[in-house]
């Protein structure tokens, strides 16, 4: 752990009013490291990402990116958001969406067309999206759109790639493909990846460390250290069982009568047994 860390949290705390999402967070993410961030809904996963984007401020403590305090719109940070469908009313082709990642924040109209075009072609090849460069974004599948998001996020050559549930609503095949693309880029460029997800299984082969947020607390460590029955039970303050089935990790609540589906499509980790809202979401009758 000798090189300078890319992301550093120092005694960080985030709360909305009296509700503390997490506090006392000290974290250093190294170049090339793949950090998975797990936790139930409302545990502050997206807020965690936002503190590194500079769109949410910490209540206490500090966060640095590449040695400097976070500043909004920095090229050191790339974001791959959740997949959201583009409407018919977006007159952009795949290449135009990626181009916005290169110079979309600058004022005026684009004059350096040729330079941008060359860079876009390079980025599209990188994520394997060259085949549909000239198709309308609204015609592309969710998986294809997420490849473009990856290309867009890589445009600024970021030091850290922040991924906010990028696999949500994708089928298994695309989940694997997108995870692969993200991991590959991180390793090749030596940038760090911080990957917020409900579901650890698609990224299990790539994860170096896990940050598990729940009930205003967190646990940080390797997959084997964190994804254990004792650790998660303590975190949730209620019995939880962590099972390994065919190389996958399944989290179920411990009292037995709320067995969760074995794979992540119903977001096994999401249904924290101590969460009061769980009965209301009606997944398990």
């Amino acid at each position: 752990m000798s090189p300078a860390p890319i992301v550093t949290f120092e005694n960080a705390r985030l709360a909305y009013g009296p509700r503390v999402l997490w506090e006392g967070l000290d974290l250093q993410v190294q170049p090339g490291e793949f950090l998975a961030v797990l936790g139930p809904n409302g545990s502050g996963k997206t807020s965690f990402i936002n503190t590194m984007l500079g769109t949410t401020a910490l209540d206490a403590g500090r966060v640095f990116i590449d040695g400097a305090p976070v500043c909004r719109g920095s090229d050191s940070v790339g974001l791959i958001p959740q997949q959201r469908p583009f409407g018919d009313n977006v007159p952009l082709r795949a290449r135009d969406l990626v181009a916005l990642g290169i110079d979309g924040t600058r004022p005026g109209i684009r004059l350096a067309r040729r330079a941008v075009r060359a860079k876009v072609d390079e980025l599209l090849e990188l994520v394997g999206a060259g085949g549909y460069a000239n198709r309308a974004v609204s015609d592309l599948s969710g998986g294809e759109q997420q490849r473009l998001r990856a290309a867009q996020a890589l445009a600024g050559d970021p030091k850290v790639l922040l991924c906010d549930e990028p696999l949500l609503s994708l089928d298994l095949h695309h989940q694997q493909a997108i995870s692969e693309v993200i991991h590959h880029q991180a390793v090749q460029r030596g940038s760090a990846v911080i990957f917020v997800t409900h579901e650890i299984n698609p990224i299990l082969p790539y994860v170096d460390r896990v940050l598990y947020l729940a009930e205003g607390r967190f646990h940080l460590g390797s997959v084997d250290e964190v994804m254990r029955t004792e650790v998660l039970s303590e975190l949730y303050g209620a019995p939880v069982q962590v099972l390994r089935v065919n190389g996958r990790i399944v989290v179920v609540s411990g009292d037995g009568n709320r067995a969760l589906p074995p794979d992540g499509h119903d977001h096994a980790e999401d249904a924290g047994p101590a969460s009061g809202a769980q009965g209301a979401n009606g997944k398990q009758a």
């Binding site: 984007l53 719109g73 920095s74 940070v77 974001l79 958001p81 977006v90 916005l100 979309g104 867009q152």
Partner: peptide
């Protein structure tokens, strides 16, 4: 086209 990413990128 993309308010979430635009906002994150500093727009």
């Amino acid at each position: 086209a993309d308010p979430v990413v635009a906002n994150a990128r500093g727009v």
